[in-house]
Design a protein around this nucleic acid. Structure first.
Lengths: 104, 104
DNA sequence: GTCTATGCATCGTTCGGCGATGTGTCCACC
DNA sequence: GGTGGACACATCGCCGAACGATGCATAGAC
């Protein structure tokens, strides 16, 4: 049952990228842009806080590494995150279906 | 191009109902519930402000009437609203497609 | 006389998105 | 040696949406 919006599309997108393998923030932004054919252009002020949020809730975990002198924090889905992603994706599909039923 | 969310799903839903004919607030809530097979349960605190918003921006217009001693404000899509609905629905479909591309 | 459905409105909290801004590295080019 | 742009992360602060709570009013049922 929905009240207006499914819980957090941004989280779903981030998990959608990480499900294909670990990635760091900046790379996620790029991946999002590319996979969506240029449609998604998420601001840094959007995704970094979102990543922190997801990590706090245990759906992803991170490791700090250093590549060519540059710091980066690489994120990966946890087991719980993987399950949660599957569940939220199902929810999203349901949401889309309900949406279609109203606006189609 | 998206930044996280399409502009206002709630508006799209409301217009989606009104496109089938004028309706008043309470009836819209009911229609939403029924058309979505019980999935949408929008709070009054969500839809009344949203209707006011839509009216302020000229996408819908309202008339006060009295039915069996009860006041009700009936809303209808304006011509601009109809165009806007079509346009936002297209945008929504695009958004869904991009979403799928990332999470599918 | 109370409860439920119908009907509308608004206030206040909460939370997410995101623009702006700051910090730092590496590399190319002039 | 300076500048500019890609890479990389973090945080602050504003704005606006969602919505629970609340208040008000009528009609009809029990």
């Amino acid at each position: 049952m929905w009240s207006a919006q499914p819980t957090n599309n941004v989280d779903l997108l981030l998990m959608g990228v990480l499900r294909r393998g670990p990635a760091h923030g900046y790379a996620i932004i790029t991946a999002l842009r590319e996979r969506s054919d240029g449609e998604f252009e998420l601001a840094e002020g959007t995704i970094y806080p979102a990543l922190h949020r997801l990590e706090r809730s245990g759906l992803i975990e991170s490791a700090l590494e250093s590549v060519q002198g540059r710091r980066r924090r690489t994120y990966a889905l946890t087991a719980r995150g993987r399950k949660e992603f599957a569940s939220r994706r199902r929810a999203w599909q349901g949401y889309v279906a309900s949406m279609q039923a109203v606006i189609a």
